[in-house]
Design a protein around this nucleic acid. Sequence first.
DNA 1: ATTATGACTTATT
DNA 2: GAATAAGCCATAA
Length: 111
Amino acid sequence: MPTPPTITPFQQKVFLALEKIPSGSVATYKRLAIAIGCKSAQAVGQALKRNPFAPQVPCHRVIPESRKIAGYKGKKDEPDVHSKKVLLISEAIIFDTESLVQKSHIINLKK
DNA sequence: ATTATGACTTATT
DNA sequence: GAATAAGCCATAA
Protein backbone atom coordinates (compact mmCIF):
# COMPACT_ATOMS: atom_id res chain seq x y z
CA MET A 1 0.00 0.00 0.00
CA PRO A 2 1.41 3.35 -0.94
CA THR A 3 1.17 5.64 2.02
CA PRO A 4 -1.66 8.09 1.45
CA PRO A 5 -0.46 11.65 1.08
CA THR A 6 -1.05 13.84 4.09
CA ILE A 7 -3.71 16.37 3.29
CA THR A 8 -4.53 19.35 5.42
CA PRO A 9 -8.17 20.40 5.90
CA PHE A 10 -7.45 23.52 3.92
CA GLN A 11 -6.22 21.49 0.99
CA GLN A 12 -9.35 19.38 1.14
CA LYS A 13 -11.43 22.49 0.77
CA VAL A 14 -9.40 23.67 -2.15
CA PHE A 15 -9.50 20.34 -3.94
CA LEU A 16 -13.21 20.05 -3.33
CA ALA A 17 -13.83 23.46 -4.86
CA LEU A 18 -11.66 22.48 -7.80
CA GLU A 19 -14.06 19.75 -8.78
CA LYS A 20 -16.72 22.37 -9.46
CA ILE A 21 -14.72 23.68 -12.36
CA PRO A 22 -15.99 21.99 -15.51
CA SER A 23 -13.70 21.06 -18.32
CA GLY A 24 -13.47 23.95 -20.73
CA SER A 25 -13.53 26.52 -17.94
CA VAL A 26 -10.97 27.91 -15.55
CA ALA A 27 -11.05 29.79 -12.27
CA THR A 28 -8.64 32.21 -10.69
CA TYR A 29 -6.76 31.74 -7.45
CA LYS A 30 -8.53 34.70 -6.00
CA ARG A 31 -12.05 33.65 -6.86
CA LEU A 32 -11.29 30.19 -5.60
CA ALA A 33 -10.02 31.65 -2.37
CA ILE A 34 -13.14 33.72 -1.92
CA ALA A 35 -15.30 30.73 -2.70
CA ILE A 36 -13.83 28.78 0.19
CA GLY A 37 -13.81 31.75 2.52
CA CYS A 38 -10.17 32.64 2.44
CA LYS A 39 -8.78 36.10 1.83
CA SER A 40 -5.51 34.94 0.42
CA ALA A 41 -5.14 33.71 -3.11
CA GLN A 42 -1.56 33.00 -2.25
CA ALA A 43 -2.61 30.45 0.30
CA VAL A 44 -4.63 28.69 -2.39
CA GLY A 45 -1.62 28.70 -4.65
CA GLN A 46 0.35 27.24 -1.82
CA ALA A 47 -2.10 24.38 -1.52
CA LEU A 48 -2.17 23.67 -5.24
CA LYS A 49 1.56 23.77 -5.42
CA ARG A 50 1.69 20.71 -3.27
CA ASN A 51 -1.26 19.06 -4.98
CA PRO A 52 -0.54 15.33 -4.85
CA PHE A 53 -3.46 14.53 -7.16
CA ALA A 54 -2.47 16.38 -10.31
CA PRO A 55 -3.89 16.17 -12.86
CA GLN A 56 -6.75 14.11 -11.47
CA VAL A 57 -7.73 17.06 -9.39
CA PRO A 58 -7.84 19.77 -12.07
CA CYS A 59 -5.42 22.17 -10.50
CA HIS A 60 -4.46 23.12 -14.05
CA ARG A 61 -7.77 24.95 -14.37
CA VAL A 62 -6.64 27.59 -11.94
CA ILE A 63 -4.88 30.70 -13.17
CA PRO A 64 -3.83 34.05 -11.68
CA GLU A 65 -5.76 37.25 -12.30
CA SER A 66 -3.18 38.24 -14.86
CA ARG A 67 -4.43 35.25 -16.86
CA LYS A 68 -0.85 34.24 -17.46
CA ILE A 69 -0.17 30.61 -16.69
CA ALA A 70 1.76 30.30 -13.47
CA GLY A 71 3.27 27.05 -12.31
CA TYR A 72 2.47 23.41 -12.57
CA LYS A 73 3.56 20.35 -10.65
CA GLY A 74 5.18 22.53 -8.05
CA LYS A 75 7.37 24.45 -10.44
CA LYS A 76 7.00 27.65 -12.37
CA ASP A 77 9.53 26.89 -15.06
CA GLU A 78 8.95 26.60 -18.78
CA PRO A 79 8.57 22.84 -19.27
CA ASP A 80 5.91 22.52 -16.60
CA VAL A 81 4.05 25.67 -17.49
CA HIS A 82 4.00 24.61 -21.08
CA SER A 83 2.54 21.22 -20.28
CA LYS A 84 -0.17 23.00 -18.34
CA LYS A 85 -0.99 25.06 -21.41
CA VAL A 86 -1.16 21.94 -23.55
CA LEU A 87 -3.50 20.38 -21.03
CA LEU A 88 -5.78 23.41 -21.15
CA ILE A 89 -5.69 23.56 -24.91
CA SER A 90 -6.82 19.95 -25.00
CA GLU A 91 -9.80 21.08 -22.91
CA ALA A 92 -10.75 23.69 -25.49
CA ILE A 93 -9.31 26.63 -23.59
CA ILE A 94 -8.28 29.37 -26.00
CA PHE A 95 -5.16 31.47 -25.55
CA ASP A 96 -4.50 34.77 -27.23
CA THR A 97 -1.21 35.94 -28.68
CA GLU A 98 0.24 36.70 -25.25
CA SER A 99 -0.54 33.22 -23.94
CA LEU A 100 -3.32 34.70 -21.84
CA VAL A 101 -6.44 32.69 -21.18
CA GLN A 102 -9.48 34.28 -22.74
CA LYS A 103 -11.70 35.92 -20.18
CA SER A 104 -14.78 34.13 -21.44
CA HIS A 105 -13.44 30.88 -20.02
CA ILE A 106 -13.15 32.16 -16.48
CA ILE A 107 -16.12 31.18 -14.34
CA ASN A 108 -17.41 32.74 -11.16
CA LEU A 109 -17.64 30.39 -8.22
CA LYS A 110 -19.14 32.60 -5.56
CA LYS A 111 -18.87 35.96 -3.99
C1' DA B 1 6.32 30.49 19.28
C1' DT B 2 8.95 32.45 15.43
C1' DT B 3 10.80 32.67 10.70
C1' DA B 4 10.86 31.88 5.97
C1' DT B 5 8.63 30.65 1.67
C1' DG B 6 5.34 31.12 -2.12
C1' DA B 7 1.61 28.21 -8.68
C1' DC B 8 -1.11 35.61 -5.45
C1' DT B 9 -2.99 40.58 -5.74
C1' DT B 10 -3.02 45.37 -5.58
C1' DA B 11 -0.94 49.77 -5.30
C1' DT B 12 2.89 52.56 -6.12
C1' DT B 13 6.88 54.33 -8.48
C1' DG C 1 5.33 47.45 -18.86
C1' DA C 2 8.99 46.33 -15.20
C1' DA C 3 10.41 46.63 -10.35
C1' DT C 4 9.04 47.33 -5.38
C1' DA C 5 6.46 47.12 -1.46
C1' DA C 6 2.83 45.73 1.32
C1' DG C 7 -1.01 42.74 2.46
C1' DC C 8 -2.58 38.17 2.76
C1' DC C 9 -2.48 33.23 4.84
C1' DA C 10 -1.37 28.12 4.95
C1' DT C 11 2.93 25.25 5.58
C1' DA C 12 7.37 23.65 6.68
C1' DA C 13 11.36 23.87 9.47
